[in-house]
Design a binder for these strands. Structure first.
Length: 311
DNA sequence: GTCCAGGGTGAAA
DNA sequence: TTTCACCCTGGA
């Protein structure tokens, strides 16, 4: 991987030779909720305190700062965010012939697992409980517009509100923003992080089991939400997220025992996929989503996206 | 207009 | 282990 400046142009953008990255599937496919497509192409969002546009290009992505600042340090920041240190090549090799993942890898190879800010990730996935992606984006968007610190020209160009700020505004404020019953989980979680009782950064160094236990100790954080935070922000590639769609996929493609519980299925998948669990999980989730979307449109998605027969 | 599902969790049975 | 309430938004 290399980072090259592009200062000969007036755009001040940075090219990252990451290999192909499917920007839409990666940034706006249910891992993160603050990326918005731009008319001019690519996706606009915030990483740390920087406002950027991320666009696909040959052999990688182009990062363009939209906050008027220079591109110094942007390459490193974005490589880390885009999960560049994940073992994507090892994953591709190992599962090239897998019944479920092989076709997925050939159909849409540019999917990555992000490395997000842990607090934003925790907040977002507590919010995700019995919700859907449009609504999660709506909720997260409204809370950052109200409480975030502006770092760019647009209303959504704001940093994610610190846990101190979220605990300060209280439950009713979040309910009024439309978070519903999740508000009563979000405020205590913010308090735990703000007080230092829960140190999310330390959990990056902790084992998977330790970190998962620390997260599920929070009210409103079960195994599912914990695994999302572990995979998408706490450097735990052995994390495997099971919802009802993934459970169905596991039954369909693998020798998972009949009537396995969500919890059992997650243990089974972690054992089966090992350190490639979070990548396998994301490709499987994406495949199920495309299949579902295709059937809702009354069509078949296998012809284009998947070279092999679905059934 | 009504109905329903949506990347769940916690408490009670 | 299973059932149920919890909020509410968008699409059918």
């Amino acid at each position: 991987m290399t980072v090259s400046d592009n200062r000969t142009t007036t755009t001040n953008s940075v090219f990252l030779s990451t290999g192909y990255i499917d920007v839409e599937a990666t940034l706006d496919g249910g891992q993160a909720f603050r990326w918005w497509p731009e008319d001019s192409g690519g996706y606009r969002g915030i990483v740390g305190r920087r406002v950027v546009n991320v666009s696909e290009t040959d052999g990688g992505v182009v990062i363009t700062p939209l906050d008027g600042k220079s591109s110094d340090g942007l390459g490193h920041l974005m490589l880390e965010y885009l999960g560049e240190d994940h073992d994507i090549e090892g994953f591709r090799t190992r599962f090239a012939d897998d019944k479920c993942l092989g076709p997925a890898l050939r159909g849409y190879s540019g999917l990555r697992v992000l490395r997000q800010d842990p607090w934003e990730c925790l907040f977002s996935f507590i919010t995700s409980s019995t919700s859907n992606i449009p609504r999660i984006k709506l909720n997260v968007g409204s809370v950052v517009e109200c409480l975030g610190y502006s770092v760019g020209p647009k209303v959504r160009d704001v940093t994610f509100p610190e846990p101190e700020v979220v605990s300060g505004v209280g439950e009713q404020f979040l309910r009024d923003l439309g978070f519903g019953f999740r508000a009563k989980y979000l405020v205590p979680a913010a308090e735990a992080v703000a007080s230092g009782q829960l140190n999310l950064t330390d959990l990056r160094e902790a084992t998977y089991a330790e970190a998962r236990e620390a997260l599920t100790a929070l009210h409103g954080v079960g195994e599912k939400v914990a695994d999302c935070v572990l995979a998408f922000s706490l450097d735990k590639p052995e994390s495997f997220i099971v919802d009802r769609h993934i459970l169905r996929a596991l039954h369909k493609w693998y020798d998972l025992p009949e009537n396995s519980s969500i919890s059992y299925a997650a243990d089974w998948a972690r054992d089966y996929f090992g350190d490639h669990s979070s990548l396998a999980n994301q490709y499987m989730f994406h495949r199920e989503r495309l299949a579902r979307r295709a059937s809702e449109w009354g069509g078949v998605h296998t012809a284009r996206a998947l070279p092999e027969d679905e059934n």
